[in-house]
């Protein structure tokens, strides 16, 4: 049986939260956590989560022979990257000087030590851990029902810097603005953890499981917003 939603398991972190949250918003869907390329290739939608360090992620992806099926899924079906699953979509990560999947142009960088000071002159901690405001840079079907500036749960030390600004779907501040959501075609990817972000996170996941990228222009027209 083909899975409605495949959550890619490449041995990097806790996927139970992701799969449980998706099952919660899509109780009728078949959700599988899998490292089988054939199952991922056949799935209707793909979720690409991940925690840990970039070099380990790439190594584990290749050890399971998943690179090509991830690249293909990102080109052809609704695809949601989460946390490390967002970062490795880009070309290169500063973490361990790692060549990534190169699906999106841009790089991944560490929060620069010298910039980590708040407006009262106090040190900001890294990892950036906790609930921060997410600003919606452009309307998108996955933002529907989520207030501008809503808080999502983050835990990360690196952030993406897309080459093309038109893929930026959301940003946050720590202390400077950084990209925390990107969208292009059938790809949506976020630095924060929707599966750990309570109601707004579940709303985003619920939007993903019904998202039809081909029809996204219509969705924008219906909401009265211009599509970026």
């Amino acid at each position: 049986m083909k899975a409605d939603i495949a959550v890619i398991d490449y041995g990097m972190g806790n996927l139970r939260s992701v799969s449980k949250a998706i099952e919660h918003v899509a109780p009728a869907a078949s959700v599988v956590v899998t490292s089988d390329p054939a199952v991922i290739a056949d799935a209707g939608r793909v979720v690409f989560p991940g925690q840990g360090a970039a070099p380990d992620c790439l190594r584990e992806i290749d050890a399971r022979g998943l690179r090509q099926v991830i690249v293909d899924a990102a080109r052809t079906k609704p695809f949601l990257g989460i946390c490390m699953g967002m970062q490795v979509l880009f070309e290169h990560s500063e973490e361990g000087d790692t060549a990534c999947l190169g699906i999106l142009p841009g790089t991944v960088q560490h929060f620069p030590h010298e910039a980590m000071i708040d407006n009262q002159g106090r040190k900001l901690k890294v990892p950036h851990m906790g609930w921060n405001n997410v600003h919606q840079a452009a309307p998108h079907p996955l933002w529907v029902g989520i207030e501008e500036g809503a808080r999502f749960y983050f835990v990360h030390s690196y952030f993406v810097q897309p080459t093309a600004p038109d893929v930026i779907a959301g940003f946050s501040h720590y202390p400077f603005p950084f990209t925390c959501a990107v969208a292009t075609g059938n790809i949506f990817a976020v630095q924060f953890h929707p599966e750990k972000s309570q109601n707004d996170g579940l709303t985003l996941l619920g939007n993903f499981v019904t998202w039809n990228p081909g029809a996204s222009d219509t969705a924008c027209d219906m909401s009265g917003a211009a599509c970026a």
């Binding site: 139970r16 939260s17 919660h24």
Partner: peptide
Amino acid sequence: AAEVFIPLTVGGGVREVGDVQRLLNAG
């Protein structure tokens, strides 16, 4: 973890890497 979607931390009796893994796998 099946119904509360905020971060969960668990401590107590963690003695080896396998304990960490079991707790993470549980959610």
